[in-house]
């Protein structure tokens, strides 16, 4: 853990965040800070509470208790659209394109209604720029429902970027991608960070998340079991134990090497 005094003011601060669904405690008092310009990985076994964490951050779920601060201002309890206007956006693990719209129209939704609230030509310019960044220009006029899974994953990122976020929360954008697509996605994530956007990413693909993250948070059963640099985290015995049930998990190889 980085001592508080050494760290500059974090862009995002999660304090003792809990979320309870009926009898199930999905998040039990999770705290962490994300510095501006970081790529911050979130890993953990299935059901660890990763997606719930993202949902609470962007406001599509209301936390049961705890605080979420964005640039030292509380944002917990704000509706999703209001959080997007402030500059935090998320993508969905299961892609949710507007299937009847073209790729370009999908991206324009972010440009029109995100933090920038672009109109007219400005929205078009923004949309075209993002389509280029995400490598979707050649598919701009395709109906979203006809895209491949790799393209749909990129469309999720493109739409989110179009909202002009300061923080982007990527929920398993590499799931279902082939090795070369994963390399492309890693380079896209670095490009996003280099453009000044802080990146939070949930990722099951351990090699990718270790390769690209500055810091990693590990959740298990709704609780933080580790946080640190990728090297620290993969060497942590508790993290290894958490993954032991999954005997083919690459984390074990990573930790052993």
């Amino acid at each position: 853990m980085v001592p508080e005094a050494m760290a500059p003011s974090p862009i995002l601060s999660v304090r003792n965040l809990s979320k309870r669904f009926e009898g199930l405690l999905a998040l039990g008092g999770v705290s962490f800070d994300v510095e501006e310009g970081q790529i911050f990985g979130v890993i953990g076994p299935n059901g660890a509470g990763k997606t719930t964490l993202f949902s609470c951050i962007v406001g599509s779920l209301v936390p049961t208790s705890g605080e979420i601060l964005f640039r030292r201002r509380r944002i917990d309890g704000l509706p999703n659209h209001a959080v997007v206007r402030k500059g935090i956006v998320r993508t969905h693990q299961i892609v949710r394109p507007f299937r009847d719209m073209t790729v370009e129209q999908n991206v324009s939704v972010g440009a029109l209604f995100g933090r920038g609230k672009r109109r007219g030509n400005e929205a078009v310019r923004r949309t075209i720029g993002i389509l280029e960044t995400t490598g979707l220009s050649h598919r701009a006029q395709a109906i979203a429902g006809t895209l491949t899974i790799g393209e749909l994953k990129r469309l999720e990122i493109a739409r989110a970027l179009a909202t002009e976020p300061e923080v982007i929360c990527l929920d398993e954008v590499m799931g279902g991608l082939n090795p070369s697509e994963i390399l492309a996605a890693m380079s896209l994530i670095r490009t996003i960070r280099d453009a000044g956007v802080t990146v939070l990413m949930i990722e099951h693909h351990i090699h990718a998340v270790v390769g690209v993250s500055d810091r990693i948070l590990v959740l298990n059963f709704g609780e933080k079991i580790a946080e640190g640099t990728p090297q620290e985290v993969v060497a942590d015995p508790e993290v290894v134990t958490a993954y032991l049930g999954d005997d083919s998990h690459p984390l074990l190889e990573e930790a052993g090497s």
Partner: peptide, 16 residues
């Protein structure tokens, strides 16, 4: 149109 197709995705992109 975004609301009709996926209201949660619309909200997630800033649509009230």
């Amino acid at each position: 149109s975004a609301i009709r197709q996926d209201i949660d995705a619309a909200e997630a992109l800033g649509i009230d």
